[in-house]
Every structure is written in C-alpha cells, then in structure tokens.
Design a protein around this nucleic acid. Structure first.
Lengths: 127, 127
DNA sequence: CTGTATCCTGTAAGATACTG
DNA sequence: CAGTATCTTACAGGATACAG
C-alpha cells in the first residue's frame, strides 16, 4: 500500500473520514464504548431523535467496516445485540477525545459564534 | 449551562459534532496544525479536490466558531492568511488522533468491507 | 490572488406505515 | 422487538464562470 495520504481524494483513508463524518456514527460508537452490548431499541432510545431506518444504516455501515459485531439470537421476540469489535474499540480513544473536546469547549464556540454574528450585523449596517 | 449531553439533539455539543462532521473541516484543521499560516490557494492545493466555494464556506465556518483567524493584508495582489487560534489548536490533538487512526487502520477496514460484501453476494446466491 | 455568483445534483436523513 | 418499505426534502457539495 502506498503511504496513506488523507489529502488525496482517492486515498482510502478518506473513506474512513467520510464514515466518521456522518451525523450518527460518532454517537453510536461513543454509546457502545460506554455500554456494551446494546440492543436496537436501547440504542434508539439513547441516541436522541434517530429514525429507525437511519439507525439501521449506521449500524450496518459500522458492521461492514468491521467496527461492530451484530449478534442475532433466535428467540421470540427477536433479540439482537450490538457490540464493538476490537477494531471498533480502538476507535474509542480518539472518538471520546472528540466528545470531550466538544463538551469542554462548546461554550467558547458558542461565544465565538455570537460575537461573529454580531460583527456581521454591524457590517451590514455600515454598508 | 446544564450538563453537556451529546445524545440530546438539542444540546449545543451536537453543533460541534455536526461541524466536525463535514467533509473538509477535519482536513483543513489537520493541514493548519501542520503548517501555519497558510494562504487560500495553498490550502486549496493541499486539500485535494475542493471547490473554491466550499473551501470558503469551510474556512468561514471555522472562523465563526473561533477556531480560525483570517488575516487580510492590504496588498496587490491580495494576500490572506489563515491560522488556527488557541481554541483551534486545542482541537489538534483529538483530530490528529482521528487522522492517525484512519491511516493505521484503513487496511483492516477495507478488508472488513471486502469480506462483508463477499458474504452479501454469497447470501444473494443462496436465496 | 482570493474569492463571489449561479446553477445543479446526489444523497443523507426524516416521517411514517408496515411486517416476520 | 427489530427492523424493512416508501416517499419526500433539504442542503452539502460540485462545476463553472466571473469579479475586485
């Protein structure tokens, strides 16, 4: 394999970033790295406001990428459990780091936004 | 401020995740944490395949969130430099961690995808 | 050089109803 | 319970031309 180069649009590392870049993947991985295994409805309840179709898509994509293991128990009613694989758990550290950054710095970001938007409004008036 | 809760759709931390979640932000932050300041065209050249409009959007969003400082020099031809702020640099560690994870584990992910897709095909034939 | 201004399109995501 | 099946829509993102 050639040197991975995130900045090359054709480099597969980009596929990884694109995956992480969807709205739900990070949240699901965070959840499963805190509690595992979890069931479909359980995940759905914890991840606020996700449609079942979308949750399925997210889980399937994670499974396809080898980050997640899906286990179906032949019972009635059906029971399906999701848990991170070894590979998925290796994502835990970097992703929780992002999560913690978000929690610690939301305030600053919101302040920055507010003052940026204020300046914008001021410029509008000037012009 | 109430406890930040990433899983609450209305929690502002989600705004942060959404920002990180676009296609280019992570790449731009990575670039600027390696070399700074950088100019518009320079960024454009390094980030493979980004349209100028989109690069502008990305940079503006980062600026609005206080992660990026944009400096315009009154010269002809115009020169504009971009660099991370303190806040932006604090994102460096978590984001480079993601980048490194991608580089280190692309192989495994691609393998997982291939075998998953193979199984899918096999199931198709079975049915 | 550093961007706007337009126009256009694909697709992620949402809502909802339904099934084994 | 754990999902599919459908339908719909917004909007991020792309291509291209042009402007100060």
């Amino acid at each position: 394999m050639p040197d991975p180069n995130l900045y090359d649009p054709d480099c597969p590392t980009r596929l990884v970033l694109d995956r992480i870049g969807d709205r739900w993947t990070v949240l699901v991985v965070l959840l499963l790295s805190q509690k595992s295994p979890m069931r479909f409805t359980e995940l759905r309840r914890h991840v606020g406001g996700i449609a079942p179709k979308v949750l399925t898509q997210t889980l399937r994509a994670l499974e396809r990428d080898g980050l997640l293991r899906r286990t179906v128990y032949a019972e009635v009613p059906p029971r399906v459990e999701y848990e991170l694989t070894e590979l998925g758990r290796s994502l835990r550290a970097p992703i929780t780091a992002i999560g913690r950054w978000a929690e610690r710095h939301v305030g600053e970001v919101l302040d920055a936004r507010a003052s940026y938007d204020d300046d914008q409004r001021a410029d509008q008036v000037d012009a």
